[in-house]
Simulated assay, not measured.
Amino acid sequence: MTALTLTESCQRLITGEVIAYPTEAVFGLGCDPDNQSAILKLLSLKQRSPEKGLILIGANLAQLKPYFDKTLLTKQQLQLINQPSDQAITWLVPKNSDTPPWLTGQFDSIAIRICHHPLAHQLCLAFAKPIVSTSANLSGYLPCRTLTEVETQFGCSFPVLNGETGHRCNPSQIRDIFTGDIIRQG
């Protein structure tokens, strides 16, 4: 594992690399959501089907707005997305017509979350846009919760933003913005 500073992590994202970084519960794998080759690297590394779609995390709602159709949401729904919570909540919202299919897979929605983990939040601010967020694990393995687990699954030279997870027990809950239905328990 190559432990990176915030600045080094941001530079890796800019150059189209995939990195691991701590989130509220587990380490995430991330890259630039607008860089198709970076997304393809991430999907190949994780052995994840492109049809499943991906989550975007941002430092604030403004970073995420270019990726979803805000005209289809009420003021209350936008407030719900923006509202801090004791639990990390990823919202399924209608995708914007310009949102690349490599982010949404087979769906007409996109999964977004305002990330409150200090390092991931700072990374999004430094990168000045959201990043892709999928759990750092190889297919069939448990998500990585420590730097050592990232190194075990991805090798000693894999780039990782040096830090700890938020130690929550479960990854983010996924909810539908229109129905409130819980798609994945958090």
Rank of each mutant, 00 (worst) to 15 (best):
T134G: 10
C169V: 15
Q11F: 02
T165I: 07
P100Y: 05
L54Q: 03
I39N: 09
R145C: 03
G166K: 02
S135L: 09
G30Q: 08
T179Y: 04
A88K: 12
D176K: 05
G53E: 05
D108Q: 14
I19N: 00
I110Y: 11
Q36F: 09
S49V: 13
G155P: 07
A128G: 03
D34T: 12
S85A: 08
V93Q: 00
L61F: 11
L161E: 01
N82S: 04
S97Q: 15
D108S: 13
P66N: 05
L72A: 08
C144Q: 06
C156I: 14
L92I: 01
R12E: 13
E151K: 08
G16L: 12
T99H: 12
L80K: 15
L13E: 08
F107T: 13
E17W: 06
P143W: 03
G180R: 04
C124N: 04
T146E: 06
D32M: 04
G16D: 02
R113C: 02
K95D: 04
L161K: 07
N96V: 00
S97E: 15
T2Q: 12
S135M: 03
L147K: 14
L29M: 06
P159S: 09
R48V: 01
T134M: 07
V26K: 11
K129N: 14
S9V: 03
S133K: 04
D98E: 15
P50S: 14
E149H: 09
R12W: 12
Q77A: 02
H117A: 01
L4R: 02
S139E: 01
K70S: 15
H167M: 12
K46E: 06
K75P: 10
T23Q: 08
P50T: 13
T7R: 14
F178H: 11
C144V: 03
F107C: 11
C31T: 06
T15M: 02
G53A: 00
I174H: 08
K46V: 03
E149T: 12
P50L: 12
T7E: 14
D69A: 07
I114K: 05
I110G: 05
V132I: 07
A20H: 00
A111H: 00
K41D: 09
L4E: 05
T5G: 07
N162W: 07
E164T: 15
L61I: 13
N82E: 04
L142Y: 09
E8I: 11
L45E: 01
L78I: 10
R175M: 14
D34R: 12
V18D: 01
P171K: 06
T179V: 00
I112T: 01
L161I: 13
I55K: 09
D176N: 11
N137R: 04
Q87W: 06
S139A: 00
I131F: 07
D98S: 15
G53I: 02
D108A: 13
G140E: 04
A128N: 14
M1I: 13
V150M: 02
S44Y: 06
T74S: 13
S172R: 06
P50D: 10
Q47R: 01
L42M: 07
Q87M: 12
L43A: 11
D108R: 15
I81P: 00
A59F: 07
L13Y: 07
V26H: 07
A62C: 09
G166H: 06
R184K: 11
